[in-house]
Amino acid sequence: MPGKVTSVLMVGVGGQGIILASKILARIIQKQGFDLKISEVHGMAQRGGSVVTHLRFGESVSSPIIDAGQADYILAGEKLEAWRWLPMLRTGGTVVTSTQEIKPVPVIMGAQKYPAKIMAALEQEAGGRVGSLVALDALALASACGQPRAANVVLSGVLSRLLGFPPEACEEAVREVVPPRFLAENMRAFRAGYQY
């Protein structure tokens, strides 16, 4: 039997920097000597679309995709996406979500309403079916670091601390993955998340 595999589902809205955040996490995980697999779906014009990245790591990983009820962590750049993908969480798993709200097209068009009580519902589940909930305004934190598009980098910082990854290895990974001209603000964003 292979050792335990940790499954992280990263969800958000196109243009929130989820690709860079998953690259940073992947590099940190690789530095810890784990096997890992990441699965994404590209395709139809993704701007403003729902974006999902499956990340799994452990001693040895087979499937690159996470099934319903299997995610140890859901990392959401937007709260409606946290809510949408919640059935993917295992009982007692952790949700890390930004409290940001990005209206989907049917809401913009006035055809549907943005669900009003997402945070209240998540908070009610915390400590139960949702083992723990970390809710933060990642956009505000990222903006304060000088890069609003680094909201997902903030979240990857939060997750890295929850997973117990050593800060030195994390920061080394950030330096290796982020292009030099964007490094300063992304490093600040990662630290803001790690220290949250």
Partner: peptide, 16 residues
Amino acid sequence: RLEVPGHSDEPIPMRP
């Protein structure tokens, strides 16, 4: 699927 009360009460708007 993790069943959370209220999750299916209200349709979740898609992002087509």
